[in-house]
């Protein structure tokens, strides 16, 4: 079976003294990977490269057989919207919109049909469906973290990338969020990559990569 997601000899440089070389990654559909590393080692840079938010100086990235280098900036934006779900360290939302509007907008931005049924289904699974009419900044931290996962999975992405999703959470919530992420990825047969310095997650994942 073909690789779902693949990176090859990625290299990125901010300037002459700050540059990163990353190990290759190969994952099949539904496979998880935990990337561990200390601060300043280029974790976020790697995540942004894999999400197509940054272009590597050299090397290649391919998702579902489409290599990022072959896409124009505009096409890459659209491709990312359709196939990649992102979870950030600090949950962020469109503050002027309610949770359901946030989710509908993300469907719209990815060029997908706005499907309120899908919105309900995702939020029900994350147990935040009672907050659909609320503004996300009025929700509790745990709810916000789950809402951020909802944003990432709403469009059925092939790849879910999470950047330090648990670092600001206590032990109990940390495990909960990590389990939810794994579960959501498994439900949609998505490949999940979590980048973190949070050693607590080590035991939950079989595939780990130390930077």
């Amino acid at each position: 079976m073909d690789d779902m997601f693949k990176t090859q000899s990625l290299f990125f440089a901010y300037n002459e003294s700050i540059y990163f070389r990353f190990p290759d990654i190969e994952l099949t559909a539904g496979e998880d990977l935990l990337i561990l590393g200390e601060s300043g080692i280029g974790k976020t840079t790697l995540l942004h490269l894999m999400a197509g938010l940054l272009r590597p100086k050299s090397g290649s990235i391919a998702l579902k057989g489409t290599s990022f280098e072959s896409l124009s900036l505009r096409k890459l934006d659209t491709f990312r919207g359709r196939h990649i779900g992102l979870v950030f360290q600090r949950p962020q939302f469109f503050n002027a919109l309610s949770l359901s509007e946030n989710l509908l907008l993300i469907q719209y931005l990815a060029g997908k049909k706005q499907d309120i049924k899908r919105v309900r289904q995702v939020t029900e699974r994350l147990a935040i469906d009672h907050k659909l009419k609320e503004k996300p900044y009025n929700m509790s931290q745990g709810e916000q973290q789950r809402a951020a996962i909802a944003l990432a999975v709403i469009n059925n992405p092939a790849l879910i990338l999470a950047d330090e999703p648990t670092s600001s959470l206590d032990d109990k919530n940390c495990m909960k969020v990590a389990t939810l992420l794994k579960q959501q990825a498994a439900d949609t047969d998505a490949t999940l990559i979590i980048i973190t310095h949070d050693q607590r997650l080590k035991n939950l994942f079989q595939n780990t990569l130390e930077l």
């Binding site: 938010l53 505009r74 990312r80 359709r82 503050n95 993300i106």
Partner: peptide, 16 residues
């Protein structure tokens, strides 16, 4: 600015 970057991350184009 973050919100804008966020929109791009979720697939909106620069023109949008």
């Amino acid at each position: 600015e973050y919100e804008m970057a966020f929109m791009r991350a979720y697939g909106s184009t620069r023109w949008q």
